[in-house]
Design a protein around this nucleic acid. Structure first.
Lengths: 193, 193, 193, 193
DNA sequence: CATGAATGAGACTTCATTCAT
DNA sequence: TATGAATGAAGTCTCATTCAT
């Protein structure tokens, strides 16, 4: 029984790698099966179609990612610290999971991922928007555009991460923090907020 | 002779649309040909292979985009104004060219685009890095990380643009400028710089 | 397992016939598959490409042919008798296998057959050259040109066979032997040699 | 007007080379046109179809070949000398025209050459059979098989020629003659015949 | 006559999926 | 449940031939 779990996991991992390296249509199911150590027919016992398979890969990655992003968030008391935690977690996760990072980039927005899957995943980002809701409330910034704030945060975060990717450098807290502080300065977020 | 130009243009446009909507392998060359109003064989007179075709689509988009981004840049005297111009141009371009925006997102980083093509395109972004070189010089910020500054700029710019995309709103100078000013405040860029 | 053998054999036979009748490029793989009673895709499970297929056809023919040419050769004591055996075997084989005869004629020297295949096949003709080596030794004919002798033998043999082909007659030992004796007389090979 | 002749000749020569090197279906008409220095469409002004083209190539080669084989034949008085002349001419011709030699080997018997063409060509070999008719008459060999004699001659002749081809040696009268004499000895043909 | 862009049938080959074992 | 041979629709690309210029 647990064996089944392992096989499923293996197929997901192999698919992730191959889809990223070769594209969806560039990866035959026979190749996934072979690298996963199962017969072609067996693959379809685990995932009825190739389309279902890539959606499951996506869900697995997203859930794992979100768990990591928002992990131990309650330990932090104020908003800036919470944001910093998310900032760091997400950059580190992307550095440590280059294949998953690329998978998101190529497929998260694509037509391979069904709308149902996208909606299901979207819900889990609530913790992030909660933080910005609270910031706006606390700082009494009326008319402030919450969505724009969130987007700016995500943009700064992702592109700071890209830096380490481009430079092929390991994560560096100092560099990352400089970037984070610039973002906070920009939106006027103080240490005590 | 001009007829050939037009046909080529038509094929590029149709390919762009279909690749974005259906993916590379999801778009048969026969479909591209049909929608372009030429025979299957004719397509291959213009582009020897499907791979070459998608690379040409990419190049066409990038060159057009870069022309737009950096257009009339010399009219602006100082760095902040130059950046503002690029900021606006790029957001507007992405709003006005949703298919090209999505094409970049899906394919710019993918293995469909050859390394040769990527390198060729990369060179044209020099005007942007020149601006940041000058900013760093003028403000005497030693040890400043130019690449990180550029990435932060691009991130802020793209994600500000995403806002209009998600909200399905037309471009709004006020909203865009608020975002831009936050970015400048973050890196300490003044009006007179 | 045995079923696979049979299918492979069937495809080889059908290919042989069609390649001879219609040429390599004149024979679509779909036609080979259909006449072999398998699906188009199945053909490629057995032979990865059409090029590999024709090389396998060639190898199969050559090996079968050589087995037949040199069969029971050890029973004969002297060189002339050995040559006679090969002479007869090869003519009879060509009469009984008209398609294989034509296949050799059209393709053995062509660019469809890879150099690797040709070299692999060439090695198996050693028994024939061994006989001529011994003849030259025994008859003490110094300076004799072994290769020329072999070529003359093959030429006489093949063109004697052509006689039956052109006349559409069955094999006739008397006629064949007259030709053989002329060849022996020409090179001075006696019954006791 | 003479210009047309030259162009026709050029196309024939290019076709010969390409058909031998790449096979009939492996040679696009566009490639023949290009290497011949004419436009694709022009080719079809000279030869209505590709099939007609290869038949014309074949006829050109055969006529040239036969002219060479039987040239100055009347100068020789007796049969052996006539045969020797043909023997030499044909071997030399094949050495000097390796492409034409291969063309014959690949295509003379193939389905690319129409039956009409083959029959037309066959007629021109009468001078050779005349010689053997006379030999049989003169030597009073009843029951002798004329066709078999001719075939043996052709076989010996071609395979003697193959010797020089395989050895990549230039023509050598002594070696060639040894072979010829063996053939004559075999059929009992004397110098005075 | 010469040109070469356009045509579209047809070639080889791949691959998601099924099913008998 | 696992297997992997078989399927055949569908994909990319070629090429003999035509025809407007």
């Amino acid at each position: 029984m647990d064996n089944k779990r392992k096989k499923r996991k293996k197929i997901i991992e192999v698919s992730l790698k191959l889809f990223v390296e070769r594209g969806f249509h560039g990866t035959p199911t026979s190749m996934i099966a072979k690298e996963s150590g199962v017969a072609t027919g067996t693959l379809f016992n685990y995932f009825k179609t190739k389309d279902i398979l890539i959606n499951e890969v996506y869900k697995d990655i997203e859930l794992e990612q979100q768990n990591y992003f928002f992990k131990n968030l309650d330990e932090e008391k104020n908003s800036k610290k919470k944001l910093k935690k998310i900032w760091e977690n997400s950059i580190i996760w992307r550095i440590n999971n280059p294949y998953k990072r690329r998978f998101g980039r190529y497929f998260s927005d694509s037509s391979f991922i069904s709308d149902d899957t996208k909606i299901e995943i979207y819900k889990h980002y609530k913790p992030l928007s909660d933080i910005f809701t609270k910031i706006i409330e606390k700082k009494g910034i009326k008319n402030s555009n919450e969505l724009m704030l969130i987007l700016n945060f995500i943009g700064a975060c992702i592109f700071t991460g890209e830096y380490f990717y481009i430079m092929k450098e390991p994560y560096n807290e100092k560099i990352s923090n400089e970037s984070f502080e610039k973002f906070c300065k920009g939106i006027g977020l103080k240490d005590e907020d």
